[in-house]
């Protein structure tokens, strides 16, 4: 299996062309992997740690849930090695909801990925929030039938992950802080680098590819499309409806909310408000309405006060 630009992510000249279709099914093609991410667009993916939270998330209008044992804020607090979740807990959540279920594996831990795939999870997040299992290599993701989402803080990192087989990208942000500043930085960095690439001629693009350590063919495709060549969500530090709408207005396709919901005073209400905010992200009147009376937001962390070794966004290579 290999990369293919997701269909109709941006207007193309060859729309309307008849394609050769075969009766023989092609299972888990890159088009259906990237296609599920396209179906999640305009939606909110929520971190949940049990069936009860998964049901609250589904009722609130989440378009998918991320099943994990501890939300990032608790991983941060408790320390130690963070690993994939108990398969039983993931299976219980799969059985409880009808929306897609995602689960996290450690960077480079391809056996955790094999285990999670066998459970019938709909998307795997190879995540820097868990403790990395390999400090040089990520998982070779094209080999799996289940699609992968990966974090990125700049264009080179995003395109390396897509080259390895990721069918969806998210900003890394700084998970578990309730502080959106890093997600904004990563989103703007990617956008600025794409704009730069769009102005380059071919010989400059070769050099730029080398500079940002990105595969040339993916960089060229990105420059042509004017956006990342897969669906791109915001993640890491989104805590309020306004944060979610900010990331949407910056051009993200949807939003992951981790600790922000279930670490707040009224999770169900906040979850519903963030869902509305992502749909009506340009409508300030709706945003004002849904931001009203939400109770306490999660206590935030100033990222400049975090020691270097506790920055999750530095993980990943």
């Amino acid at each position: 299996m290999s990369f293919a630009t997701p269909t109709n992510l941006v207007p193309t000249q060859n729309a309307g062309a008849l394609s050769a279709a075969s009766e023989v099914p092609e299972v888990a093609s890159f088009n259906v992997k990237a296609g599920l991410a396209q179906m999640l667009k305009g939606g909110v993916i929520m971190d949940v740690i049990n069936v009860e939270q998964a049901l609250i998330a589904e009722q609130a209008g989440a378009c998918a849930v991320m099943a994990l044992e501890r939300v990032p804020a608790d991983i941060r607090k408790n320390g130690g090695v963070a690993r994939m979740s108990d398969p039983k807990m993931i299976r219980d959540i799969i059985n409880a909801v009808s929306i897609p279920v995602m689960a996290k594996v450690r960077i480079g831990h391809f056996v955790e990925a094999q285990i999670i795939e066998s459970l019938g999870v709909d998307y795997i997040d190879e995540s820097e929030v868990l403790t990395p299992a390999d400090e040089s290599n990520h998982i070779a993701k094209h080999e799996y039938k289940v699609p992968f989402v990966c974090g990125a803080k700049n264009l080179g990192e995003a395109l390396r992950r897509i080259n390895e087989g990721a069918a969806m990208i998210r900003t890394k942000g700084e998970a578990g802080t309730g502080n959106v500043v890093e997600a904004v930085r990563h989103c703007r960095t990617v956008k600025a680098e794409i704009r730069k690439a769009q102005l380059m001629d071919d010989s400059e693009l070769f050099t730029f590819a080398k500079e940002i350590q990105a595969p040339y063919h993916l960089l060229k495709e990105t420059a042509k499309l004017g956006r990342l060549p897969v669906v791109n969500f915001a993640a890491g530090g989104v805590a309020t409806p306004a944060d979610a709408a900010l990331m949407m207005q910056l051009g993200c396709d949807g939003v992951f909310v981790g600790s922000g919901i279930f670490k707040s005073g009224d999770p169900a209400k906040r979850a519903k408000a963030i869902v509305q905010a992502v749909t009506h992200y340009k409508d300030a009147k709706v945003l004002a309405e849904v931001s009203e009376d939400l109770g306490e937001a999660m206590v935030g962390i100033n990222i400049s006060e975090l020691p270097e070794d506790q920055l999750y966004s530095k993980r990943g290579w």
Binding site: L18, S19, A21, S22, E23, V24, P25, E26, V27, A28, S29, N31, V32, K33, G35, L36, I94, P100, E117, G120, V121, D122, Y123, Y144, K145, V146, P147
Partner: peptide, 24 residues
């Protein structure tokens, strides 16, 4: 089933132009 069973396959769709061409 779940996402890993998602697939693409050609279909005959009644009433399309060039109906002899399978629809993806």
């Amino acid at each position: 089933g779940t996402q890993k069973e998602s697939f693409e396959a050609g279909l005959h769709v009644e009433g399309l132009d060039n109906a002899e061409r399978l629809f993806p």
